[in-house]
């Protein structure tokens, strides 16, 4: 069994995000966690702590369940979609947060300064997305529900990868044009495993405890805050690329009015970010895409290898 479970590509270590990005992520995460704590406390009262704690341990343990894929690698799952669907979004988020905190603090899987970002990447963003997609299926037939649950799980992984790529690009740690398509490509595949596992887990739970999935769980007013924050975040992230600005990061910096601050600051909080060989010729784009795909494939391979070496069974 692997000590470090799935999603190693999504656990950002310290050093890969700059301080500004890390701080903004922490801020967003803290606001959303505050809402989550308030909501779950109201609903669950004194039951909250044992329930969320044991459920977090469940997600951690479930991430260790693996199945052989090919070439000695194995598929795992990340669990955000399942956690949000079966526990409801707020409890699901608290459980995922505990998982991420323990992975960082006990296993150095994911950094501390970037923990806020990791909670966004592996908890908030994929979880809420999966939750909303899954909810679309309520009141529909079993097949539609299954399909939507699978889609929700697949999307949760792909979107998590997307956000990682964006955060890395923002921090000047990698170039978006290369890493985003590569991350998306690889996680589109990983997401399939996530979808299969999530659907199978839900079908088991539906048979064993039908009442659990029938419960109407509302998100409450906080849901709109999170939806608003997420949309705002996505707009900020995507606007520069959509608007055709050659250098998205500087555009954001300029429009946010902190470019001069960033330049005058003793530290380069926003490092230079350019994509010199993109957009010139079709060939270089393809080359970059290929390189990126190779890189991430290598990354997956290395991760799988290191996981296998740490296997205890």
């Amino acid at each position: 069994m692997n000590i470090i479970p799935a999603g190693i590509l999504l656990h950002i270590p310290d050093g890969f995000l700059n301080v500004l990005v890390s701080a903004v992520c922490w801020l967003l995460t803290l606001i959303i966690l505050g809402i989550a704590v308030a909501n779950t406390r109201r609903d669950l009262d004194e039951r909250l702590v044992p329930l969320a704690g044991v459920m977090a341990a469940f997600i951690f343990a479930a991430q260790m369940l693996n199945f052989p894929v090919a070439g000695g690698t194995s598929g795992h799952f990340i669990g955000a979609a399942l956690a949000f669907i079966v526990l409801g979004p707020w409890l699901g988020l608290l459980a995922m947060t505990a998982v991420i905190a323990v992975q960082a603090l006990v296993f150095q899987d994911g950094g501390l300064l970037v923990m806020g970002a990791n909670i966004l990447v592996m908890g908030v963003v994929p979880g809420f997305l999966a939750w909303f997609v899954y909810r679309l299926g309520q009141g529909r037939g079993a097949r539609a529900q299954t399909l939507l649950a699978g889609t929700a799980a697949w999307l949760s992984v792909v979107v998590a990868a997307l956000v990682v790529a964006l955060l890395l690009a923002f921090s000047g740690t990698s170039s978006l044009g290369v890493v985003m398509p590569a991350m998306l490509g690889v996680h589109a595949l990983i997401g399939l495993g996530e979808a299969l596992i999530t659907v199978a887990a839900l079908s088991f739970i539906r048979r064993a405890r039908p009442s659990l999935l029938e419960e109407e769980r509302s998100v409450g007013a906080g849901g709109w805050v999170v939806a608003g924050l997420s949309i705002a975040l996505l707009l900020v992230l995507f606007a520069p690329f959509a608007s055709g600005h050659p250098d998205g990061l500087e555009w954001v910096a300029e429009s946010a009015g902190f470019l001069s601050t960033a330049q005058d600051a003793p530290y380069s909080i926003l490092p230079d970010y350019t994509v010199p060989f993109l957009g010139e010729t079709g060939l270089s784009t393809i080359a970059a895409g290929l390189l990126g795909a190779l890189l991430v494939a290598g990354l997956v391979f290395l991760a799988a290898r290191s996981l296998r070496r740490r296997s205890l069974v």
Partner: peptide, 19 residues
């Protein structure tokens, strides 16, 4: 993958009872 999913489901139900 489905086998793993069933294991996850089982683990979930047991964990819920444990909580």
């Amino acid at each position: 993958a489905a086998v793993v999913g069933h294991m996850a489901g089982q683990l979930f139900v047991r964990s819920l009872d444990r909580s």
